[in-house]
Design a protein around this nucleic acid. Structure first.
Lengths: 344, 344
DNA sequence: GTGAAAGCGCTAACAG
DNA sequence: CTGTTAGCGCTTTCAC
């Protein structure tokens, strides 16, 4: 069983001939209780192997000491390092994280948010799926008065905070670098324009093209998602169109990997036949051949800020204005997009 | 505030002029309640924007519908894909996962387990850190009657289940393959022998060496951990010893990456100067140069089985014997360890 | 400093 | 089919 075998506050109280209130307070270091009593309680708790019951504590105290997190994917560097940073920051702030993974599926996202609400998380951090279009669940979250912070893939929900990187600027830097290298025939695998990172990264691309007087070829702006499949299919479409660009800018690292796979399958070579750069980095990038030049997103800072922002809102509810923080990005140059080693 | 603004069962009950028990039952689809009442309740719940309170539900029903997970690391393919599989399986079984990350730190591991116990998770899945040596926390878990399943990095705790891959056999296959290719000077970066995967993978290595009559050179069995740093330092030690092996078998994929970094820094080339293979795969392996031949661990199956085993124990507590499942591995041959392209 | 009373929101057991 | 009665284990007033 074990179900009734749990030791409760009352058990220790009885053993010590005090009330459970005393024990409860002692355990939480309440100043009401004398040093000796506190000592004694703690010792007894050890001896009896008491484990507090957070469900009871939370129900009674009306908060859970918990932040809910919803992210689209986990087995990709961007998200796994983001999560690691979120966990770390929460740990140092004595908060628990309840993580859920939507698998890029917006229905699942909604289910998870509902669970998290039912678990009475004190705050919510979310990065929306690539197919999320509907705001209503997030408005419900705000209506319940729960602090809500979006990371990277954001929505503009009144009362919620957002923390993103400078997508537009980063994208601009990348394209400008490619142009300076001499590329003119530039394609962009652009995710989805309905998702902020898709839109903003496209805008940065467009900015750079315009500034340098290069017209954007609509056939070379290909939407289709933020995952490997999108990169693979995108490249195949370019290939089959018979009009290949010299350079591809991929909206995410996974999209770039999809391109790598497709290029290899087509019997072509990066960067000789087509060059590439992407938004986002990876821990194994240095081992990949050719290693990818990219726009780096500081995931550590993204995660840390997301938690801190949320915590701020939790602790000073109603007092803190929602914030919109944008973190700068930097170009990391590796083997791709570094020299033009071919064509006339 | 929002704190008192939550709608409760009682609120809907009053509105409908029924008791909250009726509402509670209707919501959970209890057969007691008539179709019409159930319909009506569900409609009202929608209208009023009711969100159930799991803390209250759990406290009352004495279970949390939740499995706690403790893993050492998240931003590495093995763990992130393991977690993805755990989440997926839990989702399909209508269970929540509460994930914690120990960061390879055994004190943190203990803290997390204590939190999870306090949260009254129905079961626990853990993969121990590389520095965990002490069993007591796990014995405490068992004493509390909580189903406990270890994945991959396991302890032998009475009453707990384990799910591992065939570490010894996989390791054996890898070494035998290298030997058949003609290698005799074989080193093993072996993790830590106190952790099962370290021990078992070493044993497989030793088995193969013995079988083929090749003596194990103790200088070529290097311990030091399961992460990249361990691979880096391990290779540097080999390099500086002045007695370089022809072939290195790395206990994990990250260790192999550490070797890659060190080899490059030393101005050497894989596989010409030193060849390598490792235990464990990665999603980006095919893009890495040279791509790594490895022993594949089916993380999907590991995660799925871990959850199912735990669920079994939860649902039939006291009725189910703890199990010890070992999943077969397979060799995946890529560019390393495929032909000997050099030396006399 | 300590404790008694009340209740967090829900479910289980039983009675009607 | 529906409702009443009791808690789950803890924290929060507010007395003493």
């Amino acid at each position: 069983m074990g179900r009734s075998s749990h030791i409760t506050l009352d058990d220790i109280a009885k053993r010590l001939n005090v009330s459970k209130v005393t024990v409860s307070k002692a355990l939480r270091g309440h100043p009401d209780i004398s040093k000796e009593t506190t000592q004694l309680v703690k010792k007894t708790v050890q001896e009896m192997g008491y484990t507090p019951n957070y469900m009871a504590r939370n129900l009674s105290s009306q908060h859970s000491n918990t932040i809910g997190v919803v992210i689209p994917k986990i087995a990709h560097f961007f998200f796994s390092s983001l999560i690691e940073s979120i966990y770390d920051t929460a740990f140092h702030n004595n908060y628990e994280i309840i993580l859920t993974v939507s698998q890029e599926n917006s229905e699942r996202e909604i289910k998870h948010i509902e669970s998290l609400l039912a678990m009475r998380v004190d705050g919510l951090i979310v990065s929306i799926t690539q197919q999320t279009r509907d705001h209503t669940i997030f408005e419900r979250v705000k209506k319940q008065g729960i602090p809500l912070t979006f990371v990277d893939r954001v929505f503009d929900i009144p009362g919620s905070s957002t923390i993103t990187v400078d997508d537009r600027g980063g994208s601009f830097m990348a394209i400008e670098h490619a142009i300076n290298l001499g590329y003119k025939k530039i394609a962009h695998l652009a995710g989805y324009p309905e998702i902020n990172i898709g839109l903003r990264r496209y805008q940065g691309f467009e900015d750079a093209m315009k500034l340098h007087g290069i017209p954007v070829n609509p056939d070379w702006v290909i939407y289709g998602g933020f995952g490997e499949e999108a990169g693979y299919r995108g490249f195949m479409r370019l290939l089959n169109s018979g009009n290949m660009p010299e350079f591809i800018f991929a909206v995410t690292y996974p999209v770039a990997l999809g391109v790598y796979a497709a290029v290899e399958e087509a019997g072509l070579k990066i960067p000789d036949d087509v060059d590439i750069m992407c938004f986002g980095n990876s821990d194994v990038n240095r081992f990949i051949s050719p290693s990818l030049s990219c726009v780096n997103q500081p995931t550590d800072k993204l995660g840390k800020t997301a938690v801190e922002l949320t915590l701020d809102q939790i602790r000073n509810i109603d007092m803190v204005e929602p914030q919109h923080i944008e973190i700068p990005t930097e170009l990391i140059l590796r083997e791709t997009c570094s020299v033009i080693s071919r064509r006339a």
